[in-house]
Design a protein around this nucleic acid. Sequence first.
DNA 1: CTGTTAGCGCGTTCAG
DNA 2: CTGAACGCGCTAACAG
Lengths: 336, 336
Amino acid sequence: MVTIKDVAKLAGVSIATVSRSLAEPDKVSEKTRNKVIQAVEESGYVANTLAQNFRRRRSNTVLVLVPDIANPFFANIIQGIEQVARQFKYRVLLGDTQGYDENERIYSDLVSHKQADGIICLGRNIPFPYRKGRQSLDPAWPPFVMACEYHRDIPVPAVGIDNVAAAEVGVRHLLSLGHRHIAYIDGPEDSILCEDRLQGYKNALKSSQLRFEKGLVAQGDFTLASGYRAMTTLLQRKQRPSAVFCANDEMAIGAMQACRDAGCELPRDISILGFDDIVFAEYTSPRLTTIHQPRNEIGEQAMTLLLNILSGASPAASRVILPFSLELRDSTKRLE
Amino acid sequence: MVTIKDVAKLAGVSIATVSRSLAEPDKVSEKTRNKVIQAVEESGYVANTLAQNFRRRRSNTVLVLVPDIANPFFANIIQGIEQVARQFKYRVLLGDTQGYDENERIYSDLVSHKQADGIICLGRNIPFPYRKGRQSLDPAWPPFVMACEYHRDIPVPAVGIDNVAAAEVGVRHLLSLGHRHIAYIDGPEDSILCEDRLQGYKNALKSSQLRFEKGLVAQGDFTLASGYRAMTTLLQRKQRPSAVFCANDEMAIGAMQACRDAGCELPRDISILGFDDIVFAEYTSPRLTTIHQPRNEIGEQAMTLLLNILSGASPAASRVILPFSLELRDSTKRLE
DNA sequence: CTGTTAGCGCGTTCAG
DNA sequence: CTGAACGCGCTAACAG
């Protein structure tokens, strides 16, 4: 293995000079810099990252905590994160928590062990222990940002869309098509995202002087199967809803299947509205009308935000709100 | 920061003893070991992983090279990898190559820099430069295994299923339903996987004394959109195929959409057969008949294999072949 | 079984 | 602007 020493000898300078030429080129005269560069190329020297990390006390690695990597929605966000990370010579460590807090702890330990410099959290809870009711960022926490979700009380840096507004826009669309009996298939209980979407749903109803009906809300957990189950429940009501707003596309796709299995024709009998706009949404039958989120950009911005924090930017709570859009396709239809 | 020194002082032993008590407990008397453990707990010591990695010259990290993390098929394999990795205290570094060889190189550099101890490659090519025609494993290559794909000439350790057999089983199923005009939507050109599936397709045709017709093969690239395009092409033929075998489920789902857009009714007019059995396959309309691959297990086995290699197991080529199964659903139908 | 000692490869003072 | 020297925290010989 060729070390910095070898390069120094070859260039006829000290190791300090080699180190400087590589890390802070302007602090070295052009002549010696060239000598060093020459020697580096000649010897094929590559700095030992392990040694660098050790010495610098950081790893140039970020940990991405994802509840479920098999969810294509998260996958796209990760792509965005990766893209920016690569650009800034950061590595992405993957932590698939499968929804277990325990795993979150295991992974976030990596940061205290300096295996990662910061965390991007795609899930809904803060991966560190903290007292309930806490209202401020703990300075002892490692740098981290949340993508998609955020925290109600603690001003955690976060990036996402305005879920209340997005849901409201979606449901208003259904209302504008004449629907009055609109159900909501909710996501996991402790998800702020879903609370917000539920709120948007309620807001929209209110704007049309409609009463919120608890029985029209069915619980899901973001999976295809849970969407199927939730829809099946809704279809058993005496008065079936004429439209259903789903907290994500996968549940919407599950719901569509449940409708078909129950003998409904889509979108004639029931309109379905999704959320996220995953790639599959364009390939359902009928094509799924849904709320588009800029997934890639969410990932990019989250990584950028973390990079800022790592470089010592103000620890002030920064919340990045990205635009969404209603993607009109064929799964919603005017009530006849 | 509390270091090994502090613990040593607190326990009244040397740092070497502390190190040993933690790494090789049986090489230390029970009494001193307990003293050390006590001191560790008292001081809240956690070993500095960066220093350990540096000293040990390894990172306890594996790099997973994935062509496209947004593909749910790969996501499940990664889950399997992660599971085993976590169990053995390994970290998973994610490398989304987006199909660019350039990125592959960037990532595999991590290994030469000791940022990762080994590589699991989900894509189709070996991420190191090598002369064409090479037929043996280069001892200079870092430890790596391929999952799903493998190499025709070089005996790279790999895990996957028998794609020839799987495709043959699938196409025979179509034949058994009376189909005689069966198309194949192929994946990326340089994929051995796809070559094998094509071979299985040919084998099946042959077994029914059918002639292979080049015009019945359409090129795709594993994406939904490419499946749509390929199917559209096939539908323009004078004599439309009555069944289509797709090299993966996403293309199959794309193909289904193309059929609908062309006014076909599924599965009445055309039978569609997929490959992989991703979760979405159960939620298409009609539900997609497909070849099931044990994705999670492929990941687990790949990681296990790599672990073996890392622990100095024989460098002999090990190929792990896992079982597949034909998942009969509703997208294939007897020809009338 | 335990302690002493010598680095791992690099970044970073501090003189010159 | 450059070089000598130190030490980051830990592991791995080697003695004892």
